[in-house]
Amino acid sequence: MRKVLILIFSFFVIAAGAYTYLKWYSPLAVYSSGFGLDGEVQLVEAGNKSPIGAVKIEEVLVNNKVSPSEVKIQVSHHMQGFVITDDFDGEVESEYTFKEVNAVSIQPDTHPQKQLEKVNAGTATEDDLIYGLSFIHHEPINQVTIKYRHLGVSHKKSLSVN
């Protein structure tokens, strides 16, 4: 009986430790990549530092935690890059892939810095996906907050973009 209790206790300690690690480890890497002259358009490059499990963005907020007027995620590759735009349906924009944020999972090992190292080494291909969050808001964007899930654990990441 004592061995069973020790085994159960050990399982709970390991599970609690794994959950704590996953909660503290923030796999989403985000960098301000560009903006419109008026500050109402913002591009934030995003990637997943984790070697396992996709990142699923659940909510994106700007400034004082309000929803932006519009937000989309660009899925691209280094040969094409991103576009900074205030019109997701324009002629130039039709050459890029804009999707609803909740329709895309950011795949593992897509950290923007690692992607840049591949480009510099000449080993980047069209299969190496890059992700960019495009925001349009009715006032200048100063801060972006991203709420997301990774391996079933919820996280929140904030980025100052001014």
Rank of each mutant, 00 (worst) to 15 (best):
K65S: 15
V66A: 15
V66I: 15
P68I: 11
S69W: 15
S69G: 15
E70C: 09
E70D: 10
V71A: 05
V71L: 03
V71D: 04
K72N: 07
K72V: 07
I73M: 07
I73W: 02
Q74H: 03
Q74D: 00
Q74T: 01
Q74L: 04
V75P: 00
S76M: 09
H77W: 06
H77A: 09
H78R: 11
H78A: 15
M79W: 09
M79T: 11
Q80G: 07
Q80I: 15
Q80V: 13
G81E: 06
F82M: 14
F82E: 03
V83L: 15
V83Y: 12
I84Q: 08
D86V: 07
D86P: 07
D86Q: 04
D87S: 05
D87H: 12
F88R: 06
D89L: 13
D89A: 06
D89Q: 13
D89T: 14
E91C: 05
V92W: 12
V92C: 05
E93H: 03
S94G: 08
S94N: 14
T97P: 04
F98Q: 02
K99L: 12
K99Q: 11
K99T: 07
E100N: 13
E100L: 12
V101I: 09
V104T: 07
V104S: 02
V104R: 07
V104G: 01
S105I: 02
Q107K: 13
Q107L: 10
P108N: 08
D109A: 11
D109R: 13
T110F: 01
T110A: 00
P112Y: 00
P112V: 04
Q113D: 03
Q115S: 05
L116D: 00
L116K: 06
L116I: 06
L116N: 00
E117V: 01
E117L: 12
K118Y: 02
V119H: 00
V119L: 02
N120D: 04
G122L: 01
T123A: 06
A124M: 04
A124I: 13
T125H: 08
T125W: 10
E126Y: 15
E126A: 13
E126H: 14
D128R: 04
D128M: 12
D128C: 05
L129V: 00
L129E: 06
L129M: 11
I130K: 05
I130E: 02
I130D: 05
Y131I: 01
Y131R: 04
L133G: 02
S134R: 00
S134E: 05
S134P: 09
S134F: 06
F135D: 01
H137Q: 14
H137Y: 12
E139M: 10
E139N: 14
P140S: 14
P140Q: 11
N142F: 08
